[in-house]
């Protein structure tokens, strides 16, 4: 039933994407179809889609799974990595070392943060929403404390800025990185034993546990993977802005949740596909670029995103209701 439900979502998303694309092309008199516009969209998409992917993993794992700390992890990773990289490889001609140290530190911090979330949820039995609300504040607070408040400036370091700004064969580097991550994570979800066990845990944790799956280990790995994804987003944000700051992307959290839900990830756990997530992220990105192109207010964008989310709930839900009556569930 899970995949059947998501298929409805994916159909809705294809239709939404086509309507947005066609509408934007018409209203902007073809300007929207300019390759330059697509390039800039492909550059903006990855940051937020990676954060949404982290939220998606937490949601799939079930038990009210959600990760509110993704933005905090992204910024803390970038701030720590910036400070470390600047002190280790500050000299001229050390651009490559700088980049490597930065990326390694950021990934390490992301792993640690995700591991902390996972341990709090799986070992200490915290509700995910509370655990990650608390760690979000702690991570943001650590970012403030480490940087002292103002942005950590990274300067123009050659290979590093390419991560967020460069392009290869006409495609933006952040998009290529994103495509690689999408491929890897969907392989993990659909082709590995871990992915299978993750969906099973999300569907029914008790049943999964009694079939011999070590559900705590699954949860810890899932939140750790989410931390790593968030830190990749942090690297891209820092590289794009040439700096790291505790309040970058403060509006990203709800957008990330929005993308995950619009993508058909069931917040009650156990179902959700990478394709849905990517389609939802693309739809929101196109909508936001189209509204920008038309010179409309940013606030209209918020309104439209909210409307789209409610519409996706209405359409996907009423379709299901016509076919069979779903189990009655309370709000969660």
């Amino acid at each position: 039933m899970g995949s059947w439900l998501t298929d409805k979502h994916i159909r809705f998303l294809w239709v939404a994407n086509l309507i947005i694309l066609g509408g934007a092309a018409l209203v902007s008199r073809g300007q929207f179809l300019d390759p330059y516009n697509f390039q800039s969209m492909a550059k903006q998409l990855p940051e937020i889609a990676l954060l949404a992917m982290a939220v998606m993993l937490a949601m799939i794992s079930g038990g009210g799974g959600i990760d509110l700390s993704v933005v905090g992890i992204a910024n803390l990773s970038a701030i720590t990595a910036g400070i470390v990289a600047k002190s280790v490889a500050a000299g001229q001609g050390q651009g490559l070392e700088f980049t490597l140290v930065f990326v390694a530190t950021a990934l390490l911090v992301g792993t640690l943060c995700g591991l902390i979330n996972g341990l709090l949820i799986a070992r200490a039995g915290f509700a995910p929403i509370l655990a990650t609300l608390g760690t979000q504040l702690v991570f943001v607070g650590l970012g403030v404390a480490l940087s002292g408040g103002p942005a950590v400036s990274l300067g123009y370091v050659e290979p590093f800025v390419e991560l967020g700004n460069g392009s290869l064969l006409g495609l933006p580097v952040p998009f290529l990185i994103f495509a690689g991550v999408v491929g890897l994570v969907s392989w993990i979800l659909t082709r590995t034993r871990f992915g299978f066990r993750l969906y099973l845990t999300g569907t029914n944790a008790k049943a999964a546990y009694f079939t011999g799956i070590k559900t705590p280990t699954i949860l810890i790995s899932t939140y750790t993977l989410g931390g790593i994804l968030a830190s990749i987003a942090g690297i891209l944000i820092a590289s794009g802005a040439s700096s790291a700051k505790w309040d970058y992307g403060s509006s990203y959290l709800l957008i990330a949740i929005l993308i995950a839900v619009m993508g058909g990830i069931n917040p009650e756990g156990g179902s959700g596909k990478m394709l849905g997530l990517v389609l939802a992220a693309v739809a929101l990105q196109m909508l936001s670029s189209a509204l920008n192109l038309l010179g409309l207010s940013n606030f209209l964008k918020d309104f439209t995103w909210g409307l789209l989310l409610i519409l996706s709930i209405i359409f996907t839900s009423s379709w299901t209701r016509f076919s069979f009556s779903p189990g009655r569930k309370g709000p969660s």
Binding site: L258, V261, I310, I313
Partner: peptide, 9 residues
Amino acid sequence: IGTQYMIRG
């Protein structure tokens, strides 16, 4: 979340 965005937007 949806209505928050709609109302504020």
